[in-house]
Computed example of a mutant assay.
Amino acid sequence: MFPRELTLSTTRSFFLFGARGTGKSTLLERVFPKHDALWIDLLAPDQESRFALHPESLAVILDEEIMRKNRKKWVVIDEIQKVPALLGVVHKYIREKKFNFAMTGSSARKLKRAQADMLAGRASLFELFPLNHLELDDGFSLEKALHRGTLPEAWELTPEECNRYLRSYCNVYLKEEVISEQLIRKIMPFRNFLELAAIQNAQIINYSKFAKDCGVDENTVHTYFEILSDTLLGFELQPFHLSIRKRQRRNSKFYLFDIGVTRALSGRLDEKLVPHSGSYGFAFEHFVILEIHRLVHTRELDWKLSYLLTKDGNEIDLIIEKNPQKRIALEIKSNDKVDEARVSSFARLAQDIPHTEMLFLSCDKTPMRFGKVSCLHWKEGIKRIFA
């Protein structure tokens, strides 16, 4: 069992969203043991069927619980998106201050689609991600993370078992999150889209090319990316510009939520990543951006993340806006020796962004400084960002 950075509320109802396999149920069992809370598991077919047909039966169960001498004050509902109609009952009992509810979900899309009552601010929102390097602590291995990702179950398996698990994970996602929830009408174009999204991971989205390669129109591609976001399989990284209006005119990048799942979807699980190779560098950049994204959301920081691409095709990997007067520009390279020429090129790009600290993160353990650019090992860089 891994320690998690996320601290859940024990005094107020909440939603805990996260992709399948991130450890939501495990975390809730640790905070709300089954002998102290009333648990409803909607992944169990009998319970899903029962509450889908008769959502009011939850009220009967809760009223019975109220009559008990040593009644439970917390109710855990696992995978609430399976039966959105239950939220009406939940709302009533929260409003009457009779129970607190902890509700997990691996998709917000069905809740949005059903226009379900999201409890009008009566429940907090938390997100859980795959493990980060701080949670893995001394057990962390960069090579392992780049090859298999950091989903809790995948981390503890042998390489062969891990590959089977990740392939199965992708099939289960298609079967249970997409097909069974009727998010799309035709499965094959979406299956092709998933593979292409993994191959094009962390690149600027070219909607017309996606549409052509998948055999669908551009509006459908936009919908597909929305499905990935709503089912928590990834997130968009918007382009940076001081003008919010101009940001909205440019295309985002899309990052899948886990490196292992990305490799599985793209059919590259058997490919060994060799240090100093292009594929290793892409995986390392993906990893560092995922780490920062996870920590920003886990610690509930109101920071904005973006990338910068100039007219000349030069790029800054990540810009962190803590506030309009405090930004950090990051260049991320997997090299174990810092290349001063690359640092100088990065500095020329970042110097025109006002109120910006410049960090060059790599695998070089020797801290250095070239002009205004601090060169740090990626772990030290992340520590500095969140200090």
Rank of each mutant, 00 (worst) to 15 (best):
G149I: 00
C214K: 05
K365D: 11
W74I: 12
P189I: 08
E96R: 15
L273V: 07
R294E: 06
D63H: 04
E153K: 03
Q238E: 09
T26A: 10
I332C: 08
P33E: 05
L62R: 03
P275N: 03
L256Q: 10
L27D: 02
T223Q: 14
T7M: 14
D339S: 11
F210L: 02
L86G: 05
P55Q: 11
E357A: 02
Q115A: 15
E160A: 15
V343H: 06
K365R: 04
E315Y: 06
E79Q: 07
E143C: 07
N192C: 05
S57C: 08
I40S: 07
L16H: 10
I244G: 11
S168T: 12
Q325N: 10
T220G: 09
N163H: 14
L134K: 00
R185H: 08
P159D: 13
T298D: 07
I184M: 07
W378F: 01
L58V: 13
N201L: 05
F15W: 12
L349P: 05
L151K: 01
L330W: 07
V83F: 09
L131P: 00
E5Q: 02
N219S: 05
H147M: 15
V261D: 14
R20C: 09
I292H: 07
D336E: 11
M188H: 03
G88R: 13
Q238I: 11
K372F: 10
E161C: 11
S208F: 14
D270A: 03
G313M: 09
D213E: 15
L361P: 00
L305E: 08
G215I: 09
S243Y: 01
R50G: 01
Y280W: 11
Q325C: 09
A116I: 14
D312C: 06
